[in-house]
Write a protein that binds this DNA or RNA. Sequence first.
DNA 1: CTTAACTAATTGATGACTCAATCATTGATG
DNA 2: CATCAATGATTGAGTCATCAATTAGTTAAG
Lengths: 148, 148
Amino acid sequence: MRESCSPSDQILYNVITVQKELSQLFDTEMDGLSLTRYDILSNLNHVGPLRQRELQQRVDVDHAAITRHLKQLETQGLIARERCLQDNRVIYVDLTELGRDKIAHWTEQKKCLSDRLFVNMKVEEQQHLLDLLNTLQHNIQHERKTLI
Amino acid sequence: MRESCSPSDQILYNVITVQKELSQLFDTEMDGLSLTRYDILSNLNHVGPLRQRELQQRVDVDHAAITRHLKQLETQGLIARERCLQDNRVIYVDLTELGRDKIAHWTEQKKCLSDRLFVNMKVEEQQHLLDLLNTLQHNIQHERKTLI
DNA sequence: CTTAACTAATTGATGACTCAATCATTGATG
DNA sequence: CATCAATGATTGAGTCATCAATTAGTTAAG
């Protein structure tokens, strides 16, 4: 892939690389908190208690993955889970006090990192990059739909 | 992350998402060949026989991962490995005839997919996207260096 | 010559993700 | 009310990645 010359190939290759390096950077910078777990906690922080199912859709990983992450986060005391009384199948997930403290700290840390990653990029450029990425994402989703 | 509003946050989130969806699309479109394995075969196709070590650096995954991928690809008859006579530690890897046939087909398939993903993006836009991604990647690498 | 440092490849352990199968609960239909 | 489909969560198996430790071969210094 690295060998190919067309810009489109290089873009695809670059997206993969950036994601890989970004994840690693994130992990080391955030005391070992993975991007996925940050995403889980961040979602809970913004939109209060959530059903596991809803959280799974927002974070966009498998059911199984969510279950296992939440199990971990629960033993770390960052989140609490509670069965719904009306419907005994669903489990509501929310941050604990500790979780709320921690995520506040991590959010700050992430913002700091984010600032450093975009120092030399003007806001219009950022917006442009975002638009282009959105176009690409849209195309990918379209392809996936026509495939199924 | 999806909740946050600053363009930079959205960019980072989007890169993750695009990579995830792209990998899945690639897998389904290429008869289950993963991006990493495509990359391995593609490298071998372009730059002939390679030491495992060199291949590992080009594809940019762990030593262990390369060893295991090559083991698989060998049992599938796509590549061949041969010890170097001068230095018995190194193993040279090359495509077999079958491997060469297959990668030609997959390259075509990938080009086709790539074309579809960028239909509505002009070449200058593609180039611009690539430049912006490169800037981002450069910044990430810089951060990782200062961290270690 | 032998010991020590270096390099290439492999193996084992661990963690994250997916898919498929399962369990428990709910709700609707005959 | 009994059954059966639908839904939420869990579990098990398989893949792919990493790190750390190990094996095997090479090279250089005492």
